[in-house]
Nucleic acid binder design. Structure first.
Lengths: 159, 159
DNA sequence: GATAAATATTCAAATATTTGAATAAAAAGG
DNA sequence: CCTTTTTATTCAAATATTTGAATATTTATC
């Protein structure tokens, strides 16, 4: 199974990547490579690039964010279509959505690995996410806001 | 991806095998090979042998039976430890089990691929399985009885 | 819009998996 | 028990996957 020097198999390496990016703030692939080195795994940039793509990891602002890698299931990239606003209140994140879409948003959030939410509940047009503490709630709210903003920007693409 | 003559990939072939053995009464690997040939797939006996093992298919009496291939989950081989008796009544199969184990039996049955049951429900010591018709119910009842008998026989093994 | 930084892709080598033919082992049937 | 049938295993060839170095492309910054 082994391939290069201090090697682990692909599965293990990708699991490590998901772990690393949910714990540390990883901003570039170079940083990720070094973070992996700390865990004793040595890989090339090309490999890390492919891993991130396969895992469906998204870069939001200056941070990699793990997404549901169940292929086929909706990922965080759909949020901008549904989310109207996000507000943290203590350890709760309140998300206002288009009517009828709260369930979908809740569902997506539940599947995002590394998101610091204990659980979510959805009404018609509102999702409430429970975070372990107010810091986490704020972090999550910012993240969601970033995703929605980031998605609006790219190039001059209208679609 | 292709490998031999009229080839499909491993996944497809194994799916076909599960389909074939749940529809036709396949008694030997040779028969299975021919059944596959009918579907346009040509394989060697060694391959079929490995496939059956990987899929967790069990031979009960003179028939191959598909098992849950989720590895780790309990398979049909545990039934003899729990099942005390099986009786078909119209399109219902009534299974009497050791007290408290009906749920487990129900769970196992739900996961057996190719078993002609529409659904099951469990009490404390009784499982009721609903089959599409009385013929299917009888078939299922016999199958379960066979499994329990088959498991008692093998060699001189006490365990 | 030129430059630098970050990420994706191409290509060839290394490694792993899959397969059938041959053969060994096990089970069934006298 | 011996023979036949059925199933599992070994081995080598074919195929597929994974990987890093080099390079191309994209993205950010001025």
């Amino acid at each position: 199974m082994g391939v290069t020097l201090s090697s682990v198999d692909k599965q293990t390496r990708q699991d490590l990547i998901l772990g690393v990016i949910s714990e540390r703030e990883v901003g570039t692939q170079q940083e990720l490579i070094e973070a992996l080195k700390d865990v004793g795994v040595e890989v090339a940039q090309a490999t890390v690039s492919r891993d991130l793509a396969e895992l469906g990891v998204l870069k939001v602002g200056s941070r990699y964010l793990a997404l549901p890698h169940e292929p086929g299931s909706a990922g965080i990239e759909v949020l901008p279509s549904f989310v109207l606003g996000v507000t943290p209140a203590q350890n709760i994140v309140v998300i206002h959505t288009r009517d009828g879409t709260a369930g979908a948003v809740s569902n997506v959030l539940d599947r995002v690995r590394g998101l610091r939410l204990v659980g979510t509940i959805a009404g018609q047009d509102t999702v409430m996410g429970v975070a372990p503490d107010s810091g986490a709630a704020e972090e999550v709210a910012n993240l969601i806001a970033d995703v929605c903003r980031a998605r609006t920007r790219p190039a001059g693409s209208i679609e």
